[in-house]
Design a protein around this nucleic acid. Sequence first.
DNA 1: GAATATTTGCAAATGATTTGCAAAAGAGAT
DNA 2: ATCTCTTTTGCAAATCATTTGCAAATATTC
Lengths: 148, 148
Amino acid sequence: MESLCDAAKVLKSNGVRVTPARVVLLEALHSRRGPFTAQELHANLPARSADLVTVYRFLARLVKASLAREIVGSDGVAYYEMACAHNPVHPHFECLSCGRLFCLPLFREEDSARVLDYGTGHRVESVSVVFRGTCAACLANELEEGKK
Amino acid sequence: MESLCDAAKVLKSNGVRVTPARVVLLEALHSRRGPFTAQELHANLPARSADLVTVYRFLARLVKASLAREIVGSDGVAYYEMACAHNPVHPHFECLSCGRLFCLPLFREEDSARVLDYGTGHRVESVSVVFRGTCAACLANELEEGKK
DNA sequence: GAATATTTGCAAATGATTTGCAAAAGAGAT
DNA sequence: ATCTCTTTTGCAAATCATTTGCAAATATTC
Ligand SMILES: [Mn+2]
Ligand SMILES: [Mn+2]
Ligand SMILES: [Zn+2]
Ligand SMILES: [Zn+2]
C-alpha cells in the first residue's frame, strides 16, 4: 500500500538518481487517473519543470522498471499509466471515433488467472488486452446525427 | 471456406474496385503466414506493382472492412494479418528483444467466450491480446551470452 | 573541492504513416 | 469507340511522435 507506490525508493534502489525534475514528474504521475501520453503529461507540468525529452526518458525508465505500463493506441501513440499496487493490470478500451483510451474494470480473478497462465512458449513480462470500437459517448453522438 | 477468403468479392460488394494493383496485393496477402508490416509486404511485391502508399491505403481499407486485423507493436509500428475464416482472432506475442511478433494458438473456446463477452459499456469492434517479453530464441541467445 | 558518473535541455534527426494533387484507369451511358 | 463521371494511383512533400547527439549542469564519491 506504499511499497510499490513509493516509486522513488524503487528507483533509487535501482541506482536511479531522484532529481528535482523526477520528483515533479512522480508527483504529476500520482495525480493522474486514466492513461496519458508523454505530451499530455508534459503539458500539465509546472512551467519549465522538465523538458519533453526528459519526460520521455523518465517514462521509459519507469516502464523498464515495471513501475509504469505502456499501452500503444492504434495510431501508434503511446499511453502510460502507473503500475502500483493500487492499479493492477486491467483491460482497456480505445474509441476509434474520438481516439480516447479508457481503463476497464478488472477481469474477474479466474479470468485473469486464465490469461496469465496462457502458455506462450516464451518468457512473458506483460500482457495487454485492448478492446476497440466506439465509446458510449460517441455512440450517443451518432444517434444525434442520425436524427437530423 | 471460400466466402471470407474471397476478399475481392467482399470488396466489390462494398463498391471497391478490384484493380490490378489490388489483385497483386491480395495474392501477396494470401501467401503470408504471420503478421507483416506495410513495408514488408511492399518489399516482397513484384517490382513496380504497387506504390508503398497504395499498400498503406489498401491495408486501411481491408481493416475498415474487417478483412484484415491490425496489431500495433510497442514501437508504434503497425502489423497486419488477414482476417478470413482460416485465421480467427488469436493472441500474439511480441519479443521486446528482437522485435518480432508471433501469432499464438487460439484461446480455448470457453476463454475466448469470456474475453469476447466482457462487458465494456461500449460498442466493441475488435479485441487484441498481446503478450510481451522475450521470445524463446532470444532466451536461448541470452544463455549463450551468459556462458561467455 | 577535485574527479567521476548521471542527468538535462536544446536542436536536429528519424521513420512510419498521411496528405495533396494531378495524371491514369475503371464503369457506365451514348 | 467516345464522352463523362468517379475512383485509384504514384510521387513528392508534410506530419508528428519519438529518439539521438552532445555539451552544459548537477549529483555522487573520495
Ligand atoms: Mn488503465
Ligand atoms: Mn496472428
Ligand atoms: Zn469516443
Ligand atoms: Zn526475440
